[in-house]
Design a protein around this nucleic acid. Sequence first.
DNA 1: CAGACTATGATTGCATAC
DNA 2: GTATGCAATCATAGTCTG
Length: 605
Amino acid sequence: MVKNLSEEGSDKIDWDTEDELEIQEIQDAIFSSCRDLRTTGQHALSGDGEASSSSVPCRLSKFIQQFVVMGFSEESIAKAIEQNGENSDLVLDALLTFKVIEDSPAEQPTASPQLDPSISSDDSYSEYNENFLDDVYEEESWSSDSDNRICYLKDESSSLSENEQTLLSLANMGYPVEEVSIAMEICGKEASLAELTDFICAAQMSRAEDPYLPEDVKPKLKHISNDSGGYKKRKMFNQLCKGKKQRTIFDGDPISLPKPMIGFGVPTVSGPAMVRRTLPKKAVGPPFFYYENVALAPKGVWDRIASHLYDIEPEFVDSKYFCAAARKRGYIHNLPVEGRFPLLPLPPRTINEALPLSKRWWPSWDTREHLNCLQTAIGSARLTDRIRKAVEDVDGEPPMRVQKYVLEQCRKWNLVWVGRNKVAPLEPDEVEMLLGFPKNHTRGGGISRTDRYKSLGNSFQVDTVAYHLSVLKDLYPEGINVLSLFSGIGGAEVALYRLGIPLKNVVSVEKSEVNRNIVRSWRENTNQRGNLIDFDDVQQLNGDCLEQLIDSFGGFDLVIGGSPCNNLAGSNRVSRDGLEGKESSLFFEYPRILDLVKNIMSGGR
DNA sequence: CAGACTATGATTGCATAC
DNA sequence: GTATGCAATCATAGTCTG
């Protein structure tokens, strides 16, 4: 006999999506949830706003100039510098943010749900949380200046369709184009301008967290505002709309990566305030599932992966929007995408903030503000020595040729400055921090340093995954049963724990013994109740075994895991063989097991 | 033998120039 | 449209050392 889901929580979950199969709520529900959001937890971020910029002396004039030529008012620039210091990226983000906010009719900063204090104040995470809680909600700092944001559409009206005309009207009223196009899609073609503006206002009010713009948008905005060609304008318009339209996997187009790579949204970027997606009927659970792998896989791999996971469109997200290191990953899941909230504190998102000790040694010509993807191997001592010699040989700033070489190597190996003319790979505990794990998570207990790098390099970025899983918190107040495949060092478990979602029964499958030990010892250290059941091979999980497990505690609420990327990852020079490769072909175990779980839980077996 | 250390490009997508 | 340059990338295999 097949059990219900967790008795307490399952009845709250609306798996029955009528015929529409809409996972997201309709407009009314969104409106009410916005109200809830606003009343449940005004967690005003407070901070000192980087005291580094108490004054703006003359030597900054060049720094300011670059923003003036982009068309920002000096007043805004001064404000942005005051809040962000001399970090050009952050200043530009802030300036774009001011513009968006000032253009929006509703300029109400919004709240985001609060975490359990017991979780967010965990000692493991509190030590770096004071440095990066910038106050981005200083309303009086939202200066006004002239609006030239959407003028590129103006001379196009004669050739535009009715929809485009509506979009143009609203854009001219100051509403961000992306939000208008979303509103038009959700409210329908017949929606009046008033309905659309109401919708957009509500959406803006519900937007959680700091409305930074992605850096990827900057050159585009600049480019477009200078552009007078109709072709490019139309192309831009199409791109804005393209991301929102429903796409089926077998319509001929291969899956392409979004730009910026923010999936259905990230807390640190102002994008479309809410999204709605339609899941294929067969994808609607139970259980919830969450699959992950590298975004930059060989051509066609994601199409194949998606075809085995109910043709769900992957959500591609770069973890650089969550931490100071890039991590471009694709996620296929059937989770709701509305009502997400991030783990607090928000981790530092620049190298400077994440590794403050490196600031002293960082040369001005090394313009990196983000680290690249944290991988499984580190740069060699010989390389750092070569770099030291190359930089040491010259007085002052090295010649361009040397700078280029050093920067190239630093980017390739994620080297950071740790002394005069001295670069070094990250330490394992720094990698742990960047990936959102507690310090020393992978330390000791029989694991070698080399294996620490390897296990960490193969792991989730916890904040990113937690953001996606956060929607489960309200659905399962009593906790969840998790089937964790390819668990590694327990990125999924750590994410759920940090979200404050109790782990009732965890069935964990992980080949590496040291990794299994890491997860087990982490559970003991954190005094978690509930059971942990280990397997070392996914192929052991057959129908009988799963049926027994499901019978014993009533089904899985979440099936989560990222299958091996060895044969997909770009760093692999030897055996990048695609999905059929030796390790990566284990992917097929994921849909196999997921289908079994689904069938058993629906009584189909 | 475990662990540390080191050398080893190709495949993508994108921007730009023509 | 085509050529070119640029940048990013959850790694593997061989060697050395204690």
